[in-house]
Design a protein around this nucleic acid. Structure first.
Length: 658
RNA sequence: GCCGCGAUAGCUCAGCGGUAGAGCAGUGCUUUCGUAAAGCACAGGUCGUCGGUUCAAGCCCGACUCGCGGCUCCA
């Protein structure tokens, strides 16, 4: 132990100490320059610009922010402040309410002063009791709780900053109990921006007190920070809620909270997605059904949803039902409110939150043979789920939606092959929409589950086998499966490198069991099938939100609500313009026109904002030559061309990519 | 559901105790124009809803509804 050496000194000896080195990585662990290691340790350097270095910078910046907050707002208690995906946060317990936007600016300014102070971070290992008494004395009750929760025998370290080497007045240091690692000096920080404030529960538990969280982000250089902020701006510009309004795709109204109204252009996209998927279903052996919207609650008692999912279901009542529920008991006594509600709950129809029970009803409606399996049954039924107020978000989390839902009833032996086939379908679809990078995850048995370990070995094995047959690399997610079975998740990366879970396929032996579904096997005996729940888009609403942001509203011609707009240079070409418009429409193209008195420049500007793939510009030259002048959204000005040439181009682009 | 913020014309937003505003969009007229905004005029609103304070409320206070940023949740 005595021959351990300070990392800074070790690097100095080796001549590897440079200003951009913020830590080292040894044995998979990031260790900062303040720590002590064995001098023979092998390691890699962690530089400020590395991914690991960024974590160190962000965590250290969180400390500096907490220091600034406590300087500016005395009495504020600190809790935790980790680095996260895009930056960092720190949770505070601030008396007298939250932070304002102005507060953030002040805090940023004070942080810059601390950075300019260029004081070193220092690590101190202390005993549990010393740590406890220190933070108890400071009144940092949350820190005391944290220290108490650190397992016995684990090293407890403090990190301090704020004192110049020349001075020895440690009293004014800002101190936090922290594992580290941290940058050498506050001057390693600086490219920082505080982005937002939000409430957050202590330890993420909604029964705990609400704390004030400040989010920020930090980078090694100002350039990197600026680039990140630009990406945030770009994401804002592509926000599907903004584009949905600008492009007249959909709207929301108080009369139906969190339920979208698809306008003609948005409805076109919605229908185009359904048509596209129906095309794939025809090739991949699916059959589509149409099922009821509202059900006797008995159905969901059988499926088990009424137990777990009741609070998310919409219910229906009718006048008859109300009268029955209000009616006096047989002995003539008044019904209690409790009885009234109970009777309503027992008898009021439930609007479906998912399609699977319907499909089980269909499967069980007659005798089935093994020859029918696998049976792939698709449903574009409208679903309703009551989502809590705070969780709804544009089209990505709504209360009514439509899944590209299908269920595959099959034998256990068929599962792996069905997984493989589904993956083929899914990859074709994702490619068509320009999603090239797909992460695949296999969610494995959770703590709370039904079925034997042997069942789970079989089902997890079948899913993994299907993935292997499809030639996919995948990540295991232990404990993330549904209570009845494992599932595969497909996450796509969009144009801004953000990841979204869209598709899924899940193994479910539970519903066939609850509905007592059987088929007659080759042996003439009855056997129970299993079912696979699967979706490629997930919900159409959510997929549309992701796709809008992925393409920035620049829909390719095969899916664009409007494929072209005819613009006339002046009234002199209007007759020709009307003729071209009519002919294009007769071909089945989606075309509109602007024959207004605006100047061409204005028409182009207006048309651009609607992001049509093509503008057809018609002036006197085109009238004379019988041509169309084409301006492509993606390729720029294409100049005058024969009408037929444009028709051929657009016809080609109107087909879904294969 | 919780913390914080917000709701003013179709859209984007200003006004923050004293007679409701701008730009764009819309309508009419003038202009007939070749690749990112022509000009003039007109019209458009119980300032989210309900209640309170005040001589006076879009503005201050409260409740509710809806939305936004998060948290929690998404069997």
């Amino acid at each position: 132990m005595s021959d351990r050496i300070n990392v800074r000194n070790l690097l100095e000896q080796k001549g590897q100490l440079s200003p951009d080195v913020v830590a080292i990585k040894t044995d998979g662990k990031i260790v900062d320059l303040h720590s002590f290691v064995d001098p023979t340790t092998t390691f890699d350097l962690v530089r400020a610009t590395d991914k690991d270095g960024l974590q160190v910078i962000r965590h250290s910046t969180a400390h500096v922010m907490a220091d600034a907050v406590q300087k500016l707002f005395p009495g504020t208690k600190v809790t935790i402040g980790p680095a996260i995906e895009d930056g960092f946060y720190y949770d505070f317990d601030k008396p007298g309410g939250g932070f304002t936007e102005e507060d953030l600016k002040k805090i940023e300014k004070t942080m810059r002063d601390i950075v300019k102070g260029n004081t070193p971070f220092r690590r101190e290992v202390v005993s549990r009791n010393d740590a406890l008494s220190l933070f108890e004395k400071m009144g940092e009750t949350f820190k005391v709780e944290i220290i108490k929760s650190i397992p016995e025998g684990e090293e407890i370290s403090l990190y301090k900053h704020g004192t110049h080497e020349k001075s020895s007045n440690y009293e004014k240091d800002w101190v936090d109990v922290c594992e580290g690692p941290h940058v050498p000096r506050t001057s390693n920080l600086g490219a920082v921006r505080l982005t937002s404030v939000a409430g957050a529960y202590w330890r993420g538990d909604e029964r705990n007190p609400m704390l004030q969280r400040i989010y920020g982000t930090a980078f090694a250089t100002q350039e990197a920070l600026d680039e990140h902020l630009k990406l945030i701006e770009e994401a804002k510009a592509r926000d599907h809620r903004k584009l949905g309004k600008e492009l007249d795709l959909f709207l929301f109204d108080q009369v139906a909270p969190a339920m979208p109204f698809f306008l003609p252009r948005g409805a076109h996209i919605y229908n185009a997605l359904v048509d596209y998927m129906r095309g794939l279903y025809a090739v991949h052996g699916y059959e589509e059904v149409i099922t009821p919207q509202a059900f006797d609650p008995k159905l969901f008692r059988t499926s088990g949803h009424l137990g777990n999912y009741n609070e998310n279901m919409y219910r229906l009542w009718t006048e008859d039902l109300l009268e029955d529920a209000v009616a006096k008991d047989k002995d003539g006594s008044e019904k209690s409110t409790v009885d009234f509600i109970k009777q309503l709950q027992d008898s009021s129809f439930a609007i479906k939150p998912m399609n699977c029970p319907s499909h089980c009803v269909i499967f069980g409606s007659r005798r089935r043979s093994y020859r029918e399996l696998p049976w792939r049954v698709a449903d574009f039924g409208r679903l309703h789920r009551y989502e809590r107020g705070g969780v709804v978000h544009g089209l990505s989390r709504v209360r009514t939606f439509c899944q590209d839902d299908a269920h595959i009833f099959c034998t256990r032996a068929q599962v792996a092959e069905e997984i493989e086939k589904f993956i083929q379908l899914l990859y074709v679809a994702y490619k068509a929409f320009g999603f090239e990078k797909i992460d695949v995850k296999l969610a494995l048995r959770p703590e709370k589950r039904i079925g034997t370990d042997a069942d789970w070995d079989m089902s997890e094995g079948a899913l993994a086998e299907g993935l292997r047959r499809a030639g996919l690399a995948f990540e295991n997610l232990p404990g993330e499966g549904a209570f009845y079975g494992p599932k595969v998740e497909f996450h796509v990366q969009d144009a801004l490198k953000r990841s979204w879970q869209l598709g899924t396929i899940q193994f479910d032996p539970n519903l066939p069991e609850r509905f007592e579904l059987d088929y007659v096997g080759e042996d003439g005996k009855e056997h129970r099938p299993v079912m696979l729940h699967r979706a490629v888009f997930g919900s159409l609403e959510r997929f549309i939100s992701v796709y809008i942001e992925h393409c920035g509203g620049n829909f390719p011609a095969w899916i664009a609500p409007m494929q072209a707009i005819v613009l006339t240079v002046s009234d002199k070409s209007e007759a020709y313009g009307r003729d071209v418009l009519a002919r294009l429409k007769a071909h089945g193209f989606r075309v509109e026109a602007d024959f207004s008195g605006d100047k061409l420049g204005a028409k182009i500007r207006n048309a651009r904002s609607m992001r049509h793939p093509y503008m057809i510009i018609l002036g006197e030259k085109d009238v004379e030559g019988g041509t169309v002048s084409v301006r492509s959204r993606d390729k720029g000005e294409l100049g005058a061309m024969p009408y037929d040439q444009f028709v051929a181009t657009l016809a080609e682009e109107s087909k879904p990519p294969r």
